[in-house]
Design a protein around this nucleic acid. Structure first.
Length: 454
RNA sequence: GGCGGCGUGGCCGAGUGGUUUAGGCAAGGGCCUGCAAAGCCCUGUACCCGGGUUCGAUUCCCGGCGCCGCCUCCA
């Protein structure tokens, strides 16, 4: 039985889906105005792992994640670069998926775009106004948080303390500083859509309510995102649903941030590393492993040291799978005990570090069995490693880089020299291979090479 | 000011009121190897500080110190 932390209650509690055997989850996606950074990489991995684990556990999962393709930043960039908002959005959406693909993150079942939902959003705002929960001002339409019982649930603060601590600029027309825009009336140089309040565009917090309820229905199971979305974004989504008298997410899941030098990585601090840059130097699987190595709600420090560490650990996993592939092991089912330990760890609020410990234990045992010349003993352990890695989205073994003719010649030369016990020549060939970036290993079948990582 | 989180061995990072250990990376020793690499075995006596509860606390409670975050766009 999976237990998951729920931001709404601040506690880990049993996960009980709306419909038996099925999970409907919504994860807040990116605003596509720039390249994704490491923090984006972490959240897509965290929720990809949750999704995969739910499926591995037997649930049928419907996974929805939006693309915000209209917003201040996109408009600003489009104007600065003299092109249209949709051009900017399309470009960065392509970059987004290229990066998440490289991480091995499965694409959502549905990826709704805000611009395709504007009419729905206008409809929602109209209803909120009719219900007396929203009001029009000179520059837009706002939701009155006073009309929402329990506002502050996700912030885990009372409305009073939120109001007293509010840092938003005072706007005379707003009834409370915490009230937020549902609709923004058009300003010069901005894209707009028609509405009862004149041309304008939707506020950010409205798209996710509309799309989540439309695609997953009332009372869907999981709503996820980075911790910084809990307040105000998710709070405000929930406020709209509550104001409409509709039930919203049953379970709120938020992941911790990526840190750099002890500080939160964020666009506003300007201390972010682009995910695209990282993926040029580091295997996407190593980043997945790095993310898996800490609990999803803890902060995660990403440095050259921690990524190198993860790369080495990944190599250990790859090495076993390669080694096993070369030995033609009998078919075998995974070890039941290990699977149980894995399940226990993951069921405990997705304790992936503990789950990895189970995986690495199986790796060591499999290597031992292989060392002992016991393929029958190794087979179930190798099957376990494959099974668990796959459950967490890690594809092991790696694609062995094709060996070019020069390299093949060096390998052949080394084998010949070794056969003739000409160690000097053999070592010279090895040195040359290493200099060319290969890892050289002698096996009963002769010299084997593979690309060195990092 | 309000609210929340964190402080574990060289590094990363789980976890637990007490018998044997998380796990990974790095390091040292050993086995294997022509030498290596890969792999295996062994080693390091860790839990911010001060009180309290307890037969016993890293693990619960209180206080302190330090760090971080949210209350504004942000994954």
């Amino acid at each position: 039985m999976l237990r998951l932390h729920d931001t709404a209650t601040g506690a880990v509690r049993p996960f009980e889906p709306r419909d038996a055997g099925r999970v409907a989850m919504y994860v807040c996606g990116p605003t596509v105005y720039d390249v994704p950074h490491l923090g984006h990489g972490r959240f897509v991995l965290v929720f990809d792992v949750l999704r995969r684990y739910l499926e591995w556990s037997g649930y049928e999962v419907r996974y929805v994640s939006n693309i915000t393709d209209v917003d201040d930043n996109i408009i600003q960039r489009a104007n600065a670069e003299g092109r249209s908002e949709s051009e900017v959005a399309l470009q960065y959406e392509a970059v987004w998926y290229e990066a998440t693909d490289a991480l091995g993150v499965r694409r959502p079942d549905v990826d709704p775009h805000a611009t395709a939902y504007v009419e729905h959003m206008v409809g929602l705002v109209e209803q909120l106004v009719e219900r007396g929960c929203a009001y029009e001002t000179g520059d837009g339409v706002y939701l009155s948080v006073e009309s929402v019982p329990g506002y502050g649930l996700l912030a885990r603060q009372s409305l009073d303390s939120l109001q007293s601590g509010a840092r938003v600029e005072v706007d005379d027309e707003k009834r409370s500083p915490v009230d937020f825009a549902l609709w923004k009336k058009v300003k010069p140089g901005e894209p707009s859509w028609p509405s009862p309040w004149g041309p304008g565009r939707p506020g950010w917090h409205t798209e996710c309510v509309v799309m989540a309820l439309d695609l997953l229905g009332d009372g869907f199971d999981i709503h996820g995102g980075g911790q910084d979305l809990a307040f105000p974004h998710h709070e405000n989504e929930r406020a709209q649903a509550v104001a409409m008298g509709r039930s919203f997410a049953r379970h709120w899941v938020h992941n911790g941030w990526v840190m750099v030098g002890g500080e939160k990585m964020s666009k506003s601090l300007g201390n972010f590393t682009s995910l695209v840059d990282l993926l040029e130097r580091v295997d996407g699987r190593a980043y997945r492993l790095l993310v898996l190595r800490s609990h999803y709600r803890s902060p995660l420090e990403v440095t050259p040291d921690t990524t190198a560490d993860a790369s080495s650990a990944l190599e250990r996993l790859d090495n076993l799978v390669r080694r096993a592939a070369a030995e033609a092991l009998p078919r075998a089912a995974p070890d039941v005990g290990a699977l149980d330990r894995f399940r226990t760890a993951m069921d405990d609020d997705l304790d992936t570090p503990a789950a990895l410990a189970v995986l690495f234990d199986a790796v060591r045992q499999a290597n031992s069995a292989l060392d002992a010349g016991d393929p029958a003993g190794a087979a179930p352990l190798v099957a376990t490693v494959r099974e668990l890695a796959e459950a967490m989205g890690l594809v092991l073994g790696g694609d062995d880089e094709a060996v070019d003719p020069d390299t093949a010649a060096l390998v052949a030369a080394r084998d010949e020299a070794r056969a003739g016990r000409d160690w000097a020549a053999a070592d010279a060939a090895r040195d040359e291979l290493v200099a060319r970036g290969w890892v050289v290993e002698d096996t009963p079948a002769g010299t084997r090479v593979r690309r060195r990582r990092n």
